[in-house]
Design a binder for these strands. Structure first.
Lengths: 309, 309
DNA sequence: TAATGGGTTGCTCATCTGAGCAATCACATG
DNA sequence: CATGTGATTGCTCAGATGAGCAACCCATTA
């Protein structure tokens, strides 16, 4: 305890008063080496806390752990911030996207609240000439901002590129209709383009009533409940998967329009963005079943992923 | 803003990842000198915040300002701590007292909640052979801990010294009684001893109903109200003073037993301990009217004192 | 166009600092 | 009382760092 007191005095003189270890040693009548050692201890024990306070701050240590644990190629973890988790994560995703090298010529994107936030966070001119293509059937087909189309448009426009929208509902009522739509020349071409994209940017939804699919009328709350009962933890590109990453309902999946999940698994750049505790389960599945190569999320989610089971 | 982002990345690599400025420069493709400059800026602008988290931490910068502004010989300011201001301040006062050089042979003390806390914070053996003498009339005359006597005893015992108690009420009903008490050989001797002490340790009370004098029945709430109306901001050694440090009610003062305030003003070591916003006014008066040479208080109080007016 | 001046950049050099090591100390054990 | 063991101390030395300076950029002004 008395040693602690000395440590505190040393830390104050060093960090607050900007004195050299020599000076402090002379002042407190201890050797400068002891001063150095006390400072090291002070940092280690947390008596001296150094934090980086900034909206763009990250958690490099956690990122390393996550990359290691889930064999990702990269991870971006932002510190928790009261009431601004999504914004922070979206900003980080936008930063990461803008810094991607080589710059992808074509970028496949999903849609949803998270992706919209990422699009909004991208600065004008974040890249030059990037083609954006939708990965799965979308909500509104008009090009005004707000919907699935708008988000893709925004990302493309700000990179001075083109957006290719997938003109199809997310989930069809009947398999035949879905097959008919996929048979359409335009749609088939777009799906091909999507499958050939050099990078993917997507989020995921939880398997509960708050799902965007319920909101948009593709599924009824009861449907989602049933999926959850059958083991679904959430959806990626509209496809509901269980904790192991397997399709929960092949029938439903056959009626879902969009790129296959296996395409994501083989992609060099599959950037998965998620924020908030509601998505911890689906996030775990995405990282453990190899659906993404890069994870962008908040600290709480990252820690939840690192916890055993 | 983009520059900010770079600053944040540099700060993370330096402080979180413990990389050298050289390495960071290579990593981010900037010169190591720019890295150093960004780090300096990061610290200056508060992007990097370094704080010392410890019950014994102090605010050296504020202390310097306070010493400067009020021409004190020393100041001890502790960081604000939710719900533990008094404990922190008391601990700091105890530390300061124990570190006093030369060690005072006799120490004059007042009483009250603050002083009791200081006494409790002193470690066994904080000094060797210090005589403690009460400065003003006290509450209980028994020697058990808790009251004015106990506090003096505690301080003395833990220094292996003797306590000299002032066997008198704080304020007498009639001047004559007070004079009679002061005429008593024992009392006179003690007051002389008190006036000759090499160091003083005292606190002060606010001029409101929470005053210890009201609690102990020496004054009625109405009396204090009246004093406040006449300009009193609080009491030091039982003597009520206005913002300029002048006695508010000479009549009352003549009935108060204890060392005179002028003695404090001429003392080499007059250590004033105070905590809490209720005492800001009296604290201001004490430091501005030269009643103390050393101030021990919390950060909020210190900042209040530094504010204009 | 030339000159001016604030801000930035890269560099030298002196100083500061941490890693690693041998000497010493504290203390429990035989 | 000797001995071993782990922690602590002071030190050397190489590497890291900040102060200070000259060069340079770039925009404004004469």
């Amino acid at each position: 305890m008395d040693d602690d007191l000395l440590t505190v005095r040393v830390a104050e003189l060093y960090y607050d008063e900007a004195k050299t270890q020599d000076e402090i040693g002379a002042l407190l009548k201890i050797s400068r080496w002891k001063v150095g050692r006390l400072l090291t201890r002070a940092r280690e024990t947390g008596i001296v806390r150094i934090e980086i306070v900034h909206p763009r701050a990250r958690r490099l240590g956690l990122e390393r752990e996550i990359v290691e644990r889930f064999a990702l190629s990269d991870a971006v973890i932002v510190p928790d911030e009261e009431d601004a988790a999504l914004e922070r994560v979206a900003q980080a995703a936008a930063d990461h996207l803008a810094a991607l090298r080589p710059v992808p010529r074509t970028l496949g994107v999903s849609w949803g609240r998270t992706l919209t936030a990422v699009a909004d966070a991208l600065p004008e001119g974040w890249a030059h000439g990037v083609s954006v293509v939708q990965l799965n059937g979308g909500v509104s087909l008009n090009r005004r901002s707000g919907g699935a189309a708008g988000l893709a448009m925004t990302i493309a426009q700000r990179a001075g590129g083109q957006a290719t929208l997938l003109p199809s509902p997310a989930i069809l009522e009947r398999v035949e209709t879905k097959q008919a739509i996929e048979a359409d020349r335009t749609v088939a071409g777009i799906l091909e383009q999507a499958a050939a994209a050099q990078a993917y940017l997507y989020s995921a939804g939880p398997a509960d009533a708050s799902s965007a699919h319920v909101e948009n009328g593709y599924l009824k709350p009861a449907d989602v409940e049933e999926l959850a009962r059958r083991g679904a933890v959430g959806d990626v590109l509209g496809r509901y998967i269980d904790a192991d990453g397997n399709i929960v309902d092949p029938q439903l999946d056959a009626r879902t329009v969009g790129v296959s999940l296996d395409r994501l698994r083989t992609a060099k750049q599959a950037i998965f963005v998620t924020a908030g505790s509601a998505k911890h389960d689906i996030a775990r599945t995405v990282v453990t079943s190899g659906l993404c190569s890069v994870l962008v999320t908040d600290e709480t989610t990252a820690r939840a992923l690192l916890e055993e089971r």
